[in-house]
Amino acid sequence: MFGLVAEHQPLIHARGLVKRFGEFTAVDGIDLDVEPGEAFGFLGPNGAGKSSTMRMISCVSMPSAGELRILGMDPVREGPAIRARLGVCPQLDNLDPDLTVRENLTTYARYFGLSRAQARERAEEMLDFAQLRDKASSKVEPLSGGMKRRLTIARAMVNEPDLVLLDEPTTGLDPQARHLLWERLFRLKQRGVTLVLTTHYMDEAEQLCDRLVVMDGGRIVAEGSPRSLIESYASPEVVELRFGSEPLEGFVERLSGVGDRVDVLPDRILLYAKDGDDAVSEVHRRGLAPSSVLVRRASLEDVFLHLTGRTLVD
């Protein structure tokens, strides 16, 4: 099943992909190639076009313009054949409230044409994968947010997909639940499953993605590995300066020339520098007395700030 097509073509291939809703252009001409075995991420604020892109890739929504091939097939003509090999974990859980945890898995497997026996077998495997064996006979509603998410991901895996699409897999989860989920996703990655996910969490993108694109306003504004993006769009280290409640604009001039770049946020100033400690010494030498100083490694968040010129909107 995973043969010739996958070897010679990327799993996802898009050129000039556009999605319009009436007057509004949600996705404005993007190019993509995702290779087998990759963990690929879409990073961006709400409204950047991530989910619209994901819906086109999952062959639920049809492109308004441009070229799209999924698993070497055409989504318009071969939707069911493509969807048969996809696993989709939507942004909002749409588990079946009328069914138990186990039935959610067996019923879903049946939509993919698995026999009853196969469906039961896969459901048992997935109960272990999602660590939900204790809850197998429970309805969905009483489960915690993390459990529901794990069940949704398990459900997406029930057909042994070649490509798994996760739309904001950990949004709204507490830190423990997020880490457990990351660990599960990492296992999938190790098994060679191709993952495509959207997120607006920088740490999530850094943890899971081999390669990612940053989207803003329906366009791709940067592409690369998390490390290469940080190297291209941010300096190795970042100094965060706070000055109590004083207006920050006044300090910008006095900081010019310290590090590579200065960014003013509502509550703090960021200095991008090769060496953070050197930059801090320079700040003190100029007679400035910040109320707090933090030196840290640059993260994707800094890349994001640089590229979109603003903090994330939630």
Partner: peptide, 14 residues
């Protein structure tokens, strides 16, 4: 409300 069909339409079901 339950988005049951949304989930189903992500599978080969039309």
């Amino acid at each position: 409300y339950a988005k049951t069909f949304e989930a189903i339409l992500a599978t080969p079901v039309r």
